[in-house]
Design a protein around this nucleic acid. Structure first.
Length: 291
DNA sequence: ATTACGTCTTAATAGCCAAG
DNA sequence: CTTGGCTATTAAGACGTAAT
């Protein structure tokens, strides 16, 4: 399964939506680089879709998000009339895809970076499954119905705002449908380990230590965290360290080496390379630019 | 401070197995 | 069918060092 990770702020925003019916035998048209995310939510029937070699059978109550930079098309005609919602949205922020399948390695495709407006911004991530069964489909249908009907309203600035709120709720619902798929205990294990990492990020941490302190086997922890967060424990730790370092860069005058040390890096040079890898810009440039 | 690169160490993961 | 552990393999990471 693939998960979309959005970095927020900025939040993804709603553009437009509608309800469409494909007659029996009708195939979804193929399109490339549509430049928006296209959410499909099937109300009745099944859509047979394909996106760059990956095929999806989007049945009733299932949601699929087509990505802006890929080619997609229908693979075969529907057996009955197929009724589905479509919704276009977009983000100004960064986003990546994460493969959470068993044997697929995690592949990141960094999107071109928009100007980072960070000034002590606390960023966070939204995780949204690309393809999922909706938990309470009727609620999602209602939301899109509302969104769509608002488009016909008059008081546009009011309405646009309201639409964004509704859209956020919809996104949340789609995201929540994913969390049900990971079971309780494995989530707990992942959260426990993550909490430990966040508490001790300033120290040197090994996988074995993490295991001892959480009373789980390191291998098992890695599996749970991958399910829950779509990344390995060490990658999680690094992300957190980099996040903390960003705060120090903006709030203090510590040298780069000092910052590196504060967030748990033993080597200044190594810190710089990691920071650049994640942020696409070196620590000192980051500091220069954002304060 | 940053980048580049070689070396050594570690973690991730597949693929087992056992127990509930 | 899920939890949880163990091991071998291998890919990735961390570090030392030096040049820019």
């Amino acid at each position: 399964m693939q998960t979309l990770q959005f970095t927020a702020p900025p939040l993804p925003h709603y553009i437009t939506s509608g309800l469409h019916t494909n007659k029996v035998g009708q195939i979804h048209p193929g399109r490339r680089n549509i430049n928006v995310f296209d959410l499909l939510l099937v109300k009745k029937g099944t859509l047979f879709m394909e996106e760059e070699q990956e095929t999806f059978e989007v049945r009733e109550n299932h949601a699929l998000i087509l990505l802006p930079d890929r080619y997609h098309s229908g693979t075969k005609p529907g057996l009955i009339d197929t009724e589905y919602y479509w919704l276009h949205f977009q983000t100004e922020g960064m986003w990546t895809t994460i493969h959470t399948n068993h044997h697929l390695q995690s592949v990141k495709e960094e999107q071109p970076k928009p100007p980072h407006s960070a000034f002590l911004t606390r960023t966070f991530h939204l995780y949204v499954p690309q393809f999922t069964a909706m938990d309470q489909p009727q609620k999602a249908f209602d939301l899109i119905d509302q969104l769509t009907s608002l488009n016909e309203g008059l008081n546009m600035h009011q309405i646009r705002w309201q639409q964004q709120v509704l859209f956020q709720e919809l996104l949340q619902r789609i995201s929540a449908s994913m969390q049900i798929q990971t079971t309780n205990t494995s989530r707990q294990c992942a959260e426990l380990a993550a909490a430990y990492l966040r508490r001790h990020y300033q120290e040197e941490i090994t996988a074995a230590q993490l295991g001892e302190n959480t009373n789980f086997h390191p291998v098992y922890i890695a599996r749970c965290m991958h399910r829950q967060f779509g990344c390995s424990p060490m990658e999680y730790l690094q992300r957190y360290r980099i996040d903390q370092s960003k705060l120090l860069l903006l709030q203090t005058d510590y040298s780069i080496a000092r910052v590196a040390e504060e967030v748990g890096f033993n080597q200044g040079a190594y810190f710089t390379s990691c920071f650049t890898k994640f942020e696409g810009i070196s620590p000192s440039k980051y500091r220069q630019r954002f304060r």
